[in-house]
């Protein structure tokens, strides 16, 4: 039981770190991020909206992950976000020859396939966090007070 709590806390913290880092990087380079979205396939029609919506959603997810009472919701939101990015990236890399990127930190040094693997890893990690959290809740229900 204690081990499960520790695992979900660590996974939540890792996803929180990813979300907050991604959101702050985008907001600090807002103009560049918006311009990149304007050049991105499919997304370009919604560039102005997405340039705010994506970092704000990431910050909300980070806040949900911070508090123990909303951690499951945060993991679910994180899973949805990371898997959406992964699907979009995979489709675009397969369908488009040139894909603009406004990536920061270690991600900027990655190739597109490496970026997809990076995203898949975090999708699996977030999914595992949800499973462990739900298993923990089940155990709590079964354990007599």
């Amino acid at each position: 039981m204690k081990k499960q709590v520790l695992i979900t806390d660590i996974i939540s913290a890792i996803i929180l770190l990813l979300m907050l880092y991604a959101a702050l990087s985008k907001l600090l380079q807002y103009q560049q991020f918006r311009a990149t979205l304007s050049a991105a396939p499919v997304l370009k029609s919604f560039a102005a909206l997405l340039a705010w919506l994506i970092p704000v959603t990431e910050i909300i997810t980070a806040i949900l992950l911070f508090f123990p009472s909303t951690r499951l919701r945060g993991l679910q939101a994180g899973f949805l976000l990371v898997s959406t990015f992964t699907v979009y990236l995979s489709v675009m890399v397969l369908a488009t020859r040139e894909l603009p990127c406004n990536c920061g930190g270690i991600i900027s040094g990655m190739s597109w396939p490496q970026h997809i693997v990076f995203n898949i890893f975090f999708t699996i990690l977030t999914g595992s966090g949800i499973l462990v959290y739900e298993k923990r809740t089940e155990t709590m229900k079964r354990t007599p007070p």
Partner: peptide, 17 residues
């Protein structure tokens, strides 16, 4: 862990920007 994550994220963004 959450507090540590917030500190690392903020410091990393400050460093990379």
């Amino acid at each position: 862990f959450g507090i540590i994550a917030v500190i690392i994220a903020t410091a990393s963004v400050a460093f990379t920007s």
